[in-house]
Nucleic acid binder design. Structure first.
Lengths: 93, 93
DNA sequence: TGATTATATAGCTTAATAGCTAAATAGTCA
DNA sequence: TGACTATTTAGCTATTAAGCTATATAATCA
């Protein structure tokens, strides 16, 4: 279940999309305009983020608005910290 | 530069290795014994983690001891929080 | 030196992923 | 309905990644 999020986050274009969406909701076109990739390529990235449940889309006329699923993102960050953070690693050979 | 860490972390076997190493340093064989994959497969995973600078290896006789590079891991966690954490996402359409 | 042990590397196969162009879908508006 | 706009989906290619078996390397010990 976390798998999808880690995979989604492992691509730098998708991480940039997440950062863009932190500013607020944006249409697919707006997002696309920030990159030099073609629009279909960005659309596919958005789809990966959607499948990972990291973004939510909503049609508004003939635009599609994407927004961050902050809940999932926060949960993921929490999970990461639980598993990889904190624990000290003292020379215990 | 973060790219390698995200890629390394995107695989669940490698994440489990990291968790194992949080307990303390382990030989390649010990690590390998926790999985049902073959030894060469785990060796390659260890190599990915090494290239991402997430682990450090050290020969000791004919064992090779792996230990977590806690500094890098902490740095990565810090980076993640800086970029994805905290920021609220108020309905600003 | 030769046998044994621990580990890595090579070489292969299969599957997944990122990018593209072209075509389909869905909505708007005259 | 027909033209137009925004976006997704299909279908392709090239690259990367994960797994395997077989082999190589490096250290130890008799």
């Amino acid at each position: 279940m976390n798998e999808g999020i880690f995979k989604a986050m492992s691509d730098s274009t998708r991480r940039k999309i997440i950062e863009l969406l932190k500013e607020g909701p944006k249409t697919a076109g707006e997002i696309s305009s920030h990159f030099s990739y073609t629009q279909p390529t960005i659309s596919r990235h958005l789809n990966v983020l959607k499948n990972a449940n990291l973004v939510i889309d909503q049609r508004e006329g003939n635009f599609i608005i994407y927004r961050l699923n902050t809940t999932i993102l926060q949960e993921w960050l929490g999970w990461i910290f639980e598993h990889f953070g904190g624990g000290d690693n003292d020379e215990k050979e």
